[in-house]
Amino acid sequence: MATGGRRGAAAAPLLVAVAALLLGAAGHLYPGEVCPGMDIRNNLTRLHELENCSVIEGHLQILLMFKTRPEDFRDLSFPKLIMITDYLLLFRVYGLESLKDLFPNLTVIRGSRLFFNYALVIFEMVHLKELGLYNLMNITRGSVRIEKNNELCYLATIDWSRILDSVEDNYIVLNKDDNEECGDICPGTAKGKTNCPATVINGQFVERCWTHSHCQKVCPTICKSHGCTAEGLCCHSECLGNCSQPDDPTKCVACRNFYLDGRCVETCPPPYYHFQDWRCVNFSFCQDLHHKCKNSRRQGCHQYVIHNNKCIPECPSGYTMNSSNLLCTPCLGPCPKVCHLLEGEKTIDSVTSAQELRGCTVINGSLIINIRGGNNLAAELEANLGLIEEISGYLKIRRSYALVSLSFFRKLRLIRGETLEIGNYSFYALDNQNLRQLWDWSKHNLTITQGKLFFHYNPKLCLSEIHKMEEVSGTKGRQERNDIALKTNGDQASCENELLKFSYIRTSFDKI
């Protein structure tokens, strides 16, 4: 039985969820670079991206490699990797027998973001014989899940209580170790020597080791999670996991709180800001991140802002960003909400898709409305799209047979046209069989910064309504002859009103 693990408890099935942008060198404390989270699957090609990484700022997932063999891993080693800020997950990587050479110096898994409450997941690794993470000293947050690894031993010899604050939620089941077939031998045991430290858990006094050649490092209890030197002297209180010299914040392997210019500090002093819960960055760093993602459509890219001495992905609820200094300031009234469309555009074809934009005031991208039916549609669209004030790209209304009016965009005031449909149009209306009105132009103002209007096959939309939009939106004169079809717009509506004058002759039985 794995020490510190839980057996036999019912657990939810383990679901495996399925960018080499360097964020800056980590400095003297770390020998390499800070790398983003990685999802490495199918083959070993991307694994080489770990070569210079000291910190993975995010998670590391290595999974679904069915053609790899043990010899493929023999020359692979990433000794610079010290810390993973989120979680480490391995799933069905064939041929991998140990992690001792792959990650010989991995010391800390912070667990800032977890995989279903777990910071370390080893699942269905069919050839893994031992973990071998002999320098792993601290899992700051989260638990361990090690399950269905039929060859995995050296679990009962690990004292997880020396690595985690609590072992109650560890789930370590259905491994070879369960069948008591392992016969784990710690260093020196074969020669009758006791080389590794022994600890007591559940009444068992057991030597602690990761492999037959690597003991588990056990520091004096007084050192807590700070770690200790090879001689057993406690590291500085700002260290986490390990250090090369005692009581020196510049000799830590990793930091308990924050890293700044080669030393570990309790908090980031001005003019620095907390970033990702582990390091200090200056304003320029946060500003660069903001600008890199301002026009990016890459998933996970955030326009970072500053709030409460932190550089964070977005302002919290009730705050909006001051564009001059990136500071989050309290909103006066309802907060603006910028919604970034991942692929640059979004099609609204149902109430469900409209709900995804609920509360958005600025759309960074283009909207395509293609709704053919739905219950209580006008009210639903207004509830979900009615706060949109600005669209950076274009607005396209296409084959939306259920629409009679666009009044559900009740606050839309600006279409920038930074991206144009077919390279020309910022407003595009095609084949809307029941569209009769755009907006009530006596109450609604709309500016279209650039781009043209396109109207074709809107049989109940009168040309007068379209011409009014040209005047109000500032697009009059931009359109070419064929942009607004004269014969297919309003051709099934009563669009022309003329005053009919009647004269009559009164007659009676005795007068003409």
Rank of each mutant, 00 (worst) to 15 (best):
H28Y: 05
H28G: 00
Y30V: 13
P31M: 15
E33N: 11
V34G: 06
P36M: 03
P36G: 14
G37C: 04
I40F: 15
R41P: 00
R41I: 00
N43E: 05
E49F: 14
L50G: 01
E57K: 04
G58P: 00
L60A: 02
Q61N: 02
M65F: 02
M65Q: 06
F66H: 03
F66A: 00
K67W: 05
R69A: 04
D72V: 01
D75G: 02
D75H: 05
P79N: 06
P79D: 07
K80L: 08
K80M: 10
K80H: 08
L81K: 00
L81Q: 04
I82N: 06
I82E: 12
I82F: 06
M83W: 02
I84F: 00
I84S: 00
I84V: 03
T85P: 00
L89R: 00
Y94F: 03
Y94G: 03
L96I: 03
E97W: 14
L99H: 01
L102H: 00
F103V: 02
F103N: 00
P104S: 01
V108I: 14
I109K: 00
I109Y: 00
R110N: 07
F116M: 01
N117R: 01
N117D: 10
Y118R: 00
V121G: 00
V121D: 01
F123A: 05
M125L: 01
H127R: 05
H127V: 01
L128A: 06
L128V: 02
K129F: 04
K129T: 06
K129E: 05
E130C: 05
L131A: 03
L131I: 08
Y134F: 14
I139R: 00
R141V: 01
S143N: 10
S143A: 12
R145G: 00
R145F: 04
R145E: 00
R145A: 01
R145Y: 06
I146T: 01
K148Q: 02
K148R: 10
N149V: 03
N150K: 07
N150W: 15
N150I: 14
E151V: 13
E151M: 09
L152P: 09
C153K: 09
C153W: 01
C153N: 00
L155G: 05
L155S: 03
A156Q: 08
I158C: 04
D159V: 01
W160A: 01
W160P: 00
W160G: 01
S161G: 10
S161Q: 13
S161K: 08
R162T: 10
R162E: 06
R162W: 12
I163G: 01
L164P: 00
D165S: 14
E168W: 11
N170R: 11
Y171H: 07
Y171V: 14
Y171I: 13
V173Y: 04
D177S: 04
D177L: 05
D178Q: 12
N179P: 07
E180N: 13
G183Y: 15
G183R: 08
D184I: 03
I185R: 06
C186I: 04
C186N: 00
P187I: 10
G188Q: 08
G188R: 07
G188M: 07
G192K: 10
N195P: 06
C196P: 09
P197E: 12
T199F: 08
V200T: 07
V200S: 15
N202G: 14
N202T: 10
F205A: 09
F205T: 15
E207Y: 14
C209G: 08
T211D: 10
S213I: 08
S213Q: 08
H214M: 10
C215E: 09
C215W: 04
C215K: 05
Q216K: 02
Q216V: 03
K217T: 02
V218S: 10
V218H: 14
I222N: 11
S225F: 13
S225C: 14
S225L: 05
G227I: 02
G227D: 02
C228K: 02
T229L: 11
C235F: 03
C235V: 00
H236G: 09
H236I: 02
E238D: 04
E238I: 02
C239G: 02
N242G: 04
N242Q: 13
C243P: 00
C243I: 01
S244N: 05
S244I: 06
Q245G: 11
Q245L: 10
P246Y: 07
D248S: 09
D248A: 09
D248P: 00
T250E: 11
T250Q: 06
C255L: 01
R256I: 10
N257D: 04
Y259D: 07
D261F: 12
G262F: 08
C264H: 02
V265G: 02
P271C: 08
P271A: 12
Y272R: 01
Y273M: 15
H274L: 06
Q276F: 08
Q276K: 09
D277V: 03
R279S: 04
R279A: 05
C280S: 00
F285M: 10
F285D: 06
Q287G: 12
L289D: 05
H290M: 09
H290W: 14
K292P: 04
K294L: 06
N295W: 14
R297Q: 09
R298L: 11
Q299I: 09
G300A: 10
G300D: 03
G300Y: 08
G300T: 11
H302E: 09
H302K: 03
Y304A: 04
I306E: 04
N309W: 06
N309A: 12
K310V: 10
K310R: 14
K310M: 08
C311A: 13
E314S: 04
E314P: 03
C315L: 04
P316G: 07
P316I: 06
S317N: 04
G318Q: 15
N322A: 06
N322L: 08
S323K: 05
S323P: 09
N325R: 10
L326V: 14
C328V: 04
C328P: 02
T329H: 04
P330R: 10
P330F: 09
P330W: 05
L332N: 14
C335P: 02
P336L: 12
P336I: 10
